[in-house]
Computed example of a mutant assay.
Amino acid sequence: MSSATPTALAVSPLTTPGPAGAGGRDAPAGPADRARLLVTCRDQPGIVGAVGTFLARAGANVHSLAQHSTAPEGGTFFQRTEFRLPGLAAARAQLEADFTEQVARPYGMDFTLHEERHPKRVAVLVSKTDHCVLDLLWRNRRGELPMTVAMVISNHPDLADDVRSFGVPFFHVPATRDNREQAEERMLELLRGNVDLVVLARYMQIITPAFLDGVGCPLINIHHSFLPAFIGAAPYAKAKGRGVKLVGATAHYVTADLDEGPIIEQDVVRVGHQHTAADLARLGADVERAVLSRAVRWHLEDRVARHGNTTVVL
């Protein structure tokens, strides 16, 4: 058994001082009067017109609209609408109430409304491998990822200084298969109610169903292959041993079924016999960074709609 105890799972000296969820680098607030409206319902005539007419009558100007139906007849309809409405913050409550009564209820519609001035709060979980977490923090600092990084949690202390250099709190929560329940409970204390998204940036611990039930927000994972090829340890050595011609990465939502959640984004790079296992790992890391950053950005921008075990990216 591990020597870790509940006391050992308290915030370690490597942690930036401050309460759970405090600190971090805030994303610049988006335009105060801009918002995104996402709707889902059974496909039927008149949905686009009803949404557009409602927004026009409310005084909103639509500047982007994307839609998709899963089938020409009897499918599920998805629509993402970006609009600007002067005085949105003050008008939001009434706008949502009116939309519910005039559009959502008649069409049997589920909807969400997100104001751009409120970037999502994100936590990143990582182990020792640094390329994905540092890429996310770098893109956030450059303004490419509109999010507030609330914290980074790791089961190892190795990346504390690197993370701190971005002004982000670092929490070391030792986690092994022997103390998994205690470790997850400590992480839930840090995360619950403090974040809108958790990103697994090469966090090499199994996430249990109990953790998924308790965290209260979506989780996105990056997997170093086209699922399910070459899972487990040393994937690039396994790939080299099979003479692969493509190295890929997959970003997906986390579910209780390990590595089988809805896929958000994938990509590949071509390789050949001249590449060593180290070359494959280097090229694979490049793909992982790109795939994960795209998936996170699309989620932050409310572009990803889940439909069963698939996704629609609008």
Results as ranks from 00 to 15, higher is better:
P106Q: 08
G193P: 02
R186N: 02
L188D: 00
M151H: 06
H172P: 05
R192T: 04
A93H: 13
H172D: 05
S154V: 06
R121Q: 06
E96P: 10
A150C: 07
G167T: 03
R92V: 14
V149Y: 01
H172M: 07
F171K: 10
P157I: 05
F83C: 09
L134M: 15
M109A: 10
M151W: 05
L125M: 15
G193M: 02
G143W: 02
Q102N: 08
D110R: 14
L88S: 03
A175N: 10
A150E: 04
T100G: 14
V126P: 03
R177W: 10
L88V: 06
V126C: 01
V163I: 15
V168D: 03
L191R: 05
F77K: 04
T176N: 09
V152L: 06
T148Q: 11
G87R: 13
A89N: 00
E184F: 01
N140L: 09
V195F: 00
T112R: 15
E189I: 01
R141T: 12
E116N: 14
T129C: 07
H131Q: 11
A160I: 00
M187P: 00
F166N: 06
Q79T: 07
K120S: 11
L113W: 06
T112N: 09
F77D: 01
C132V: 07
S127N: 06
T148A: 10
L95D: 11
Q79D: 01
L125G: 00
P157C: 06
L191V: 07
A160F: 03
D135P: 09
N179K: 10
L134T: 14
L134Y: 13
R105E: 14
L188N: 03
L136S: 02
V133Q: 07
A90Y: 08
F170P: 04
R192M: 01
V152Q: 02
A97D: 12
F171S: 10
R186C: 04
A160Q: 00
F77T: 03
R139C: 00
D130F: 01
P174Q: 08
T176D: 11
R117T: 14
R105Q: 14
R142Q: 15
V122R: 01
D98I: 11
A175G: 05
F111Y: 15
A123N: 03
Q94T: 13
V163K: 07
L95Q: 13
V195W: 02
W138L: 13
Q182S: 14
R105C: 12
Q182F: 10
V152F: 04
C132R: 06
A97S: 14
S154F: 07
Q94G: 13
